[in-house]
Design a protein around this nucleic acid. Structure first.
Length: 218
DNA sequence: CGGCTTTGACCCGCGC
DNA sequence: GCGCGGGTCAAAGCCG
């Protein structure tokens, strides 16, 4: 806190955001070096054809229209107002990836409660798949995740892993699965929206923002 | 010792 | 109704 803190590295490359959930941030420093390309698959758009192009990799997302001012000033993890907007063409790829049930509100419930919840209406939660060409199964997106399950998936040589955000009030989940067709591709499916700031991002930005606040006094 | 992963069991939805 | 497949739980074990 006190004393001279070294300036954090300037963000020279843009944050990678999803069109659906702008609160999902992938900080440049968190993107594995082995990552050579990635794509965002919108899993909620019913107008998209699941049988369309199965390999919608966006090798270059256009970040030129990112509003960095509002990004930095908007409340992190907000549900209502998108912090920025990007407009890549999103394509639903694999229906099996996104066919899971939605609207599970529970976190830890007993079997009876779970049974009750299962009969509740299914509210759709925002979901999207993030396709990454990477040697690493786990893409460090800045949030902390706890693995709670792993399942062998039919017609796939690789298991699917299930993760939950470790933040106590956050119920975001993600699934990670490597494609058996192309083993260099990892599909990460996010479900829900974080209701808290990205820890790593805040860690990185806090000193910078402090510096900006200080400088703005003059 | 706390946080995390592993893994078998269990639950549920869905198709037949 | 039954079986299958996907998603989750929770106990046990691992690790820093």
């Amino acid at each position: 806190m006190e004393g001279q803190e070294p300036l954090p590295p300037l963000i020279s490359s843009p944050l990678l955001l999803t069109p659906q959930n702008p609160s999902f941030l992938f900080t440049p420093s968190s993107i594995p070096s082995s990552l050579s390309s990635s794509s965002i698959l919108n899993t909620n758009n019913p107008n998209l054809n699941p049988n369309s192009n199965p390999n919608p990799i966006h090798n270059s997302l256009d970040y030129s229209d990112i509003d960095w001012i509002s990004l930095l000033s908007a409340p992190a993890g907000g549900h209502d107002q998108p912090m920025i907007s990007t407009k890549p063409n999103t394509i639903l790829q694999n229906s099996s990836v996104v066919s899971a049930k939605n609207g599970e509100e529970e976190n830890k419930l007993g079997s009876n409660k779970r049974r009750a919840v299962g009969k509740m209406r299914k509210a759709s939660r925002p979901r999207f798949a993030f396709q990454t060409k990477s040697a690493d199964d786990i893409l460090d997106d800045g949030y902390r995740w706890r693995k709670y399950g792993q399942k062998a998936v039919k017609n796939s040589a690789y298991p699917r892993s299930y993760y939950r955000c470790t933040h106590h009030t956050c119920n975001v989940k993600k699934q990670v699965q490597r494609l058996s067709k192309d083993t260099s591709i990892v599909v990460t499916t996010y479900e829900g929206i974080h209701n808290h700031p990205c820890e790593k991002l805040m860690e990185t930005l806090t000193p910078l923002l402090r510096q900006m606040q200080f400088l703005s006094r003059f």
